Amino acid sequence: MKVLIVEDEKMLAETVRRGLSNEGFVVDVVNDGVSGVRAAKEKRYDVILLDLMLPLKNGYDVLKEIREHRIWTPVLMLTAKDGEYDQTDAFDLGADDYLTKPFSFLVLVARIRALMRRGAPERPVVLSIGTLSLDPVSRNVRRGDTPLSLTAKEYGLLHYLMRRHGQVVSKSEILDNVWDSAFEGGDNVIEVYIGYLRRKIDTPFGLHTLTTIRGMGYMLNPDRPAPAGSPDPAAE
Rank of each mutant, 00 (worst) to 15 (best):
N31S: 14
N31P: 11
D32Y: 08
D32M: 07
G33R: 05
V34N: 13
S35K: 07
G36Y: 09
R38W: 14
A39S: 14
A40E: 09
K41V: 09
K43W: 13
R44Q: 11
Y45G: 05
Y45S: 12
V47M: 14
L49N: 15
L49K: 13
L49C: 15
L50F: 15
L50I: 11
L54N: 14
L54I: 08
L54T: 04
L54V: 09
L54A: 13
P55S: 11
L56G: 09
K57D: 11
K57R: 09
K57C: 08
Y60Q: 06
E65L: 02
I66F: 03
H69V: 00
W72E: 00
W72K: 00
T73P: 04
V75E: 05
M77S: 02
E84V: 03
Q87A: 14
T88I: 14
A90S: 14
A90W: 12
D92Y: 10
G94D: 08
D96R: 04
L99I: 03
T100S: 10
L106C: 08
V107P: 07
L108R: 00
V109Q: 14
R111C: 11
R111Y: 10
L115R: 07
R117H: 08
R118N: 04
P121E: 11
P121N: 04
P121H: 06
E122T: 03
E122H: 01
R123M: 02
V126K: 08
V126Y: 07
V126M: 06
V126S: 10
G130S: 15
L132Q: 12
L134C: 12
L134D: 03
D135W: 02
P136F: 01
V137P: 05
V137M: 09
S138M: 05
N140C: 13
P147K: 00
P147E: 11
S149L: 01
